[in-house]
Nucleic acid binder design. Structure first.
Lengths: 297, 297
DNA sequence: TTATTGTCTTTTATCGTGAAAAAACAGTTT
DNA sequence: AAACTGTTTTTTCACGATAAAAGACAATAA
């Protein structure tokens, strides 16, 4: 196998959802823009849709014949990127315990275990190295630095530095900047979530990321914006392994976000600083308490 | 060709220099530690040294027979890593002009031009992407963001944030920390260079990097330490293309460093902050004035 | 018995190759 | 003629294979 066709499969699945809404599909370039793939892939999708009797396709006319059934969709797991598969697998090992700091990482073994080529694993490790959890020894193996307390402290130190600066930049943005509308929308979503926190608390992490990314973007600094990838990645997995008091934690965080948003809207730099600091402090606390004890150096 | 033996060649060249100093070489493991390579490579080196009549090798005894000549050394260019070759080639293109921001980067074309496989180029681009000069479009090509004024400003913003913090951490280090001795040594080197600046001004860049890395290390934060790689990389190439007033610039910088060092030794946070700010300001100015005009967006 | 050498095994670095996906080009339709 | 479809070319992505380099193990010498 040289390259999986997950791009096609994922786009196909998303394309199926379009069939539920319309009686005929738009032009190929339009579909390409809609699904974010090339026309080549669109044509492969259309070909299969025709084959399975979902549409009648003749040049410009693409008539929907029937609504897609559950078994028309490709299985979820076949739509993942190789790097997503590798990352998940790698993080599972990392968090499963037994992954002590200092331990060496074997490309070949990882590749065999996950069932992929070594090149993909290498490329993943290179990409992953910027998160600061692993390190390469010159023409030799990788070393696991581990998700330790030191890591969490170093991460949050930078995060706090960057976010305080971004928040200040945000508050200083002119009245007519479109970000204020974005902020209003996010505020509404927060209020809604706060009201239904009892049942929807697990939707917070996604909202959290969108909120903080909006703030960081105000810095207009690529290094600050990019650094949020590290935070997002850590929090993504952190949310998965630390379910203790998830509802309570998220409830507190939503309230802090609302206070933070109010401070931003007030444009009062003192208030912004205080609200930001308060939220970051509790975020740091949450992260620190969740570090597995076995991984202390 | 599947893998070049540059590790061997480079270690061999460094090994030759040992022959000039001693009459017999130490054990294989010891040599390995000395040259930073495995025993396998050491044995290959010894085998060649024996073959070319440099040493007599019999088990433990490795007697030096003659001093190495110039033609015993492998050519300099054969000792480079592939990634060094690719980086140099890539940067040359980037700085040669005609590399407008937004331009797309072609892996295959790069690989062909440099005469290497696509895998190596891909891995280089992934590694290089953390410098913020290029960006990947999801399952498509890379896009050049370019060495623009915006880039320089974003870079220096972070640099200043990080260095001010590191410098403060440095000054707060206890009396008995070994960094003070390192600082003393660096101070001496600065004084020496200041005295002979007329002839040795081009040695400043290397000293500059060592000095700033020492400071950054005091932060004890991997993200801060790692970020210096971005700065070092930019300054490395910056020094190559901007030779205007090099002597004057370096003379000023050496003086600023000495003031900075004095401030650190005084442990007076106010003085440290002032000296650091002053130096960073002139460093930023130097960098900004050197940005090629043609690359403004 | 401990470090060192000789030998064998494993892992990393790099390439060429082939399928998936993108992009370019050419011919059609409205 | 502008946008679309059909066709061809190019590029990206991922693999297996292979030489370089590292590492492990057994045999040996101090």
């Amino acid at each position: 196998m040289s390259k999986s066709n997950n791009v096609y499969k994922d786009a196909y699945n998303r394309g199926l959802r379009l069939l539920e809404e319309t009686k005929s599909l738009p032009s190929e370039p339009e579909l390409g823009a809609l699904l974010g793939v090339s026309r080549t892939t669109i044509r492969t999708i259309l070909a299969r849709m025709e084959e399975t009797g979902l549409i009648a396709w003749n040049k410009r006319s693409k008539t929907v014949l029937r609504v897609p059934r559950q078994d028309d969709f490709f299985p979820e797991e076949e739509t993942d990127t190789l790097s997503q598969i590798i990352e998940r697998s790698f993080m599972r090992r990392l968090l499963a315990g037994g992954a002590e700091p200092g331990m060496q990482i074997n490309e070949l073994e990882l590749a065999r275990e996950i069932g992929v080529g070594t090149t993909s694993v290498r490329e993943f490790l290179i990409r992953f190295s910027r998160f600061g959890l692993i390190e390469k020894r010159r023409n030799s193996h990788w070393v696991l630095k581990g998700f330790t307390r030191a890591f969490a402290l170093e991460l949050t130190e930078i995060r706090e530095m960057f976010e305080l600066r971004s928040a200040a930049a945000f508050a200083a943005l002119p009245e007519d900047s479109p970000v204020w509308a974005d902020l209003d929308l996010l505020e509404d979503e927060h209020r809604l979530l706060a009201r239904e926190i009892a049942t929807r608390f697990n939707e917070f992490s996604e909202l959290d990321e969108r909120f903080h990314r909006l703030i960081h973007r105000a810095s207009h600094n690529r290094f600050i914006v990019d650094f949020y990838d590290v935070i997002a990645m850590i929090f993504h997995y952190h949310y998965q392994w630390n379910k203790a008091q998830e509802r309570e934690r998220n409830e507190v965080a939503v309230a802090e976000h609302l206070a933070y948003i109010a401070a931003l809207k007030s444009r009062d730099l003192g208030k912004v600083d205080a609200a930001c600091r308060k939220h970051l402090k509790s975020a740091r606390h949450t992260l620190l308490t969740s570090i597995p004890e076995g991984q202390q150096p």
